[in-house]
Each structure stands twice: as structure tokens, then as C-alpha cells.
């Protein structure tokens, strides 16, 4: 699967990933809220195959599921970060989004880079030819994610 990296920094909070003002049951409103608190207008720039690549503690703070739901609504089936908050990790798993933890990835990937991702194996091929390995999921969690893809 080829994916385009949309890169964000460290410590991006859920309040930035999906501000409370976009909380809704209307999928269109939820969609346009994605990353609106950190990069206003981001949703206008999303193309098919885009995924979010972020630094440490992605999704810290609130446990609102709207952030993971918005990614899902945009068709993002994986997200890569140097680390996830517990809430973001669980919310991604529960929405069938592979939350791939790759320490140090921000040093290696720039906005717009194309990545070839094999999420189940936790394998990410970089434009430079390098290969990164994400932490593994226990088999039961793989099943949980696959059931919700």
C-alpha cells in the first residue's frame, strides 16, 4: 500500500487533532475537523492515500473518539507516530486503524513523502530505500483491527 505522509510534530493533543467545536454526529462536520486545531484548513488538502505521521504522544489529553473517527472517515487505515496516547491507540484499534509506533520516524520522513506500508507486519519502506519496523501487535489485537477495517 503506497501512502502519502502528512507530517505533524510531537505532543499533538486530541484537542488539536479534533477540536471540541467539531464534535458532531454529522460525518461531514466530523471530517472537516481533522487536525483543524493544529493546521487549519488541513482537510481541504487531504487526498486519497494520505496518512498522518506524527511524533511522540500523539493524541494526548482527551479520550474523545472523534479524532480516530475522522481519520477513518477520510479512509486513513493507518497512522504512524513515535508514540500514541493510550486513548488514541485504543480508539484507532477499535476503528480498524493500524496505529504503528515507530520511534524516530520524524527524523526520516518529510511532508508529502511517499511510503510503502505493510501495517500488519509493521513494515514501512521509505523513499530513500530504508525500511522501518513498527512495534508488533499481539495476534488477538491484529484480529480485532482486521474485524473493523
Amino acid at each position: 500500500m503506497e501512502r502519502r505522509a502528512r507530517v505533524f510534530g510531537h505532543d499533538i493533543t486530541l484537542d488539536e487533532i479534533h477540536p471540541g467545536t467539531f464534535f458532531s454526529l454529522n460525518p461531514e462536520k466530523v471530517k472537516i475537523g481533522l487536525m483543524e486545531g493544529v493546521r487549519p484548513g488541513f482537510s481541504d488538502t487531504i487526498k486519497e492515500g494520505d496518512i498522518i505521521v506524527a511524533g511522540r504522544n500523539f493524541g494526548m489529553g482527551s479520550g474523545r473518539e472523534s479524532g480516530a473517527w475522522a481519520m477513518k472517515l477520510w479512509g486513513m487505515d493507518c497512522v504512524i507516530a513515535e508514540g500514541f496516547s493510550r486513548y488514541m491507540f485504543r480508539n484507532c484499534v477499535n476503528n480498524g486503524i493500524w496505529a504503528l509506533e515507530v520511534p524516530g520516524i520524524l527524523e526520516l520522513v518529510e511532508e508529502g513523502d511517499m511510503l510503502v506500508v505493510n501495517p500488519e507486519e509493521g513494515c514501512i519502506n521509505l523513499k530513500s530505500g530504508g525500511v522501518l519496523a513498527a512495534g508488533e501487535f499481539p495476534p488477538w489485537m491484529v484480529n480485532l483491527i482486521k474485524a473493523r477495517l
Partner: peptide
């Protein structure tokens, strides 16, 4: 987490959980 003040193990979850 606040319920820990009264000795309960309070833990938060998202909607699907």
C-alpha cells in the same frame, strides 16, 4: 482517573471501548 481519590481504580475509555 479522579475516582482514585476515593480508592476506586477509575479508567477512561473512548466510545467503541
Amino acid at each position: 482517573t479522579m475516582y482514585g481519590a476515593v480508592g476506586a481504580l477509575g479508567v477512561g475509555f473512548g466510545a467503541s471501548d
